[in-house]
Computed example of a mutant assay.
Amino acid sequence: MTLAADTREAVRRHPFLHDALRARVVNYTAVARFLDVEGETDAVVAALRRFADDLPEYERPGDAPPVSMESGLGDGDPADAVLAVGDLALVPDEGSLTAITAGGAADAAALRQVLGRLETAEVSVEAAAAGGGSLVVVVGRRDGPDAVRAVEDALAA
């Protein structure tokens, strides 16, 4: 592979760098040093700049979708589940977990933003999914209010 191809592949292994390049908020030299790409730093910087120029501009989401919270989730019958993944089916009135749901046009990209925001807010996520224009993240009951604020913040950014 070429240095440019190696650089692009290295960036793709770090989605936060991909987003930062799209938003034009990076120090290219620092990114070049961070990436594990063989070559002179100046050459990697040049490859990063060319890559950034080819990327679509980062677009902030429009209006934030409505966000709601439902507490008391626990394992139960998949037919009644708010969220089911593999053998886990989380249903109302069966436990101590809280589901944060966002409607509107929430998609996998929105879920990625939400999960990143929850991570920086130090809110542990038990389960998460996106589909059909909605997303749901499941957190501990005590993390519910912080999670709602973080989800609203992530989707309004």
Rank of each mutant, 00 (worst) to 15 (best):
residue 24 R to Q: 13
residue 11 V to M: 03
residue 30 A to Y: 10
residue 122 E to V: 03
residue 22 R to N: 09
residue 109 A to L: 09
residue 32 A to T: 08
residue 145 P to G: 08
residue 78 P to E: 05
residue 69 M to K: 07
residue 104 G to M: 01
residue 7 T to W: 10
residue 103 G to W: 08
residue 149 R to E: 07
residue 9 E to I: 05
residue 129 A to V: 09
residue 95 G to R: 00
residue 54 D to F: 00
residue 114 V to H: 08
residue 82 V to A: 09
residue 101 T to L: 02
residue 59 E to V: 13
residue 13 R to M: 12
residue 134 S to H: 12
residue 65 P to N: 09
residue 46 A to D: 14
residue 154 A to K: 02
residue 125 V to T: 12
residue 38 E to N: 15
residue 56 P to Q: 13
residue 127 A to R: 12
residue 131 G to E: 03
residue 112 R to N: 09
residue 104 G to S: 05
residue 21 L to A: 05
residue 53 D to N: 13
residue 66 P to G: 15
residue 99 A to T: 07
residue 19 D to W: 08
residue 22 R to W: 04
residue 138 V to M: 03
residue 74 G to R: 03
residue 64 A to V: 15
residue 146 D to P: 06
residue 33 R to P: 11
residue 18 H to E: 14
residue 61 P to S: 15
residue 95 G to M: 10
residue 26 V to Q: 10
residue 73 L to G: 12
residue 6 D to V: 04
residue 149 R to Y: 01
residue 78 P to L: 02
residue 82 V to Y: 00
residue 49 R to F: 06
residue 121 A to C: 08
residue 47 A to N: 05
residue 64 A to Y: 01
residue 26 V to S: 05
residue 128 A to D: 07
residue 69 M to G: 06
residue 72 G to I: 02
residue 109 A to T: 14
residue 78 P to N: 08
residue 136 V to W: 09
residue 43 A to G: 14
residue 74 G to M: 04
residue 139 V to I: 03
residue 61 P to I: 11
residue 97 L to K: 04
residue 67 V to D: 08
residue 117 R to G: 02
residue 60 R to H: 15
residue 62 G to T: 15
residue 81 A to P: 03
residue 135 L to P: 04
residue 35 L to I: 07
residue 88 L to N: 12
residue 64 A to L: 12
residue 15 P to L: 00
residue 95 G to I: 11
residue 29 T to G: 09
residue 63 D to F: 03
residue 45 V to M: 00
residue 59 E to Y: 08
residue 104 G to K: 02
residue 37 V to P: 00
residue 43 A to E: 15
residue 108 A to Q: 13
residue 97 L to H: 05
residue 95 G to A: 11
residue 155 L to K: 05
residue 72 G to H: 06
residue 80 D to M: 07
residue 38 E to L: 10
residue 49 R to S: 13
residue 12 R to S: 12
residue 54 D to M: 00
residue 20 A to N: 11
residue 63 D to M: 11
residue 72 G to V: 02
residue 141 R to L: 02
residue 110 A to C: 12
residue 65 P to V: 07
residue 31 V to C: 06
residue 19 D to T: 10
residue 98 T to L: 05
residue 1 M to K: 03
residue 150 A to K: 01
residue 37 V to G: 06
residue 88 L to E: 15
residue 104 G to V: 03
residue 71 S to M: 12
residue 111 L to P: 06
residue 83 L to V: 10
residue 138 V to W: 10
residue 19 D to F: 03
residue 72 G to F: 09
residue 71 S to D: 11
residue 14 H to Y: 11
residue 109 A to Q: 05
residue 133 G to M: 11
residue 96 S to C: 14
residue 103 G to L: 03
residue 9 E to Q: 14
residue 156 A to C: 10
residue 90 L to V: 09
residue 18 H to R: 14
residue 95 G to V: 12
residue 129 A to C: 09
residue 146 D to L: 00
residue 134 S to F: 04
residue 3 L to A: 07
residue 115 L to Q: 00
residue 143 D to N: 07
residue 132 G to C: 02
residue 17 L to K: 06
residue 83 L to C: 06
residue 84 A to Q: 05
residue 152 E to N: 01
residue 123 V to S: 00
residue 16 F to I: 14
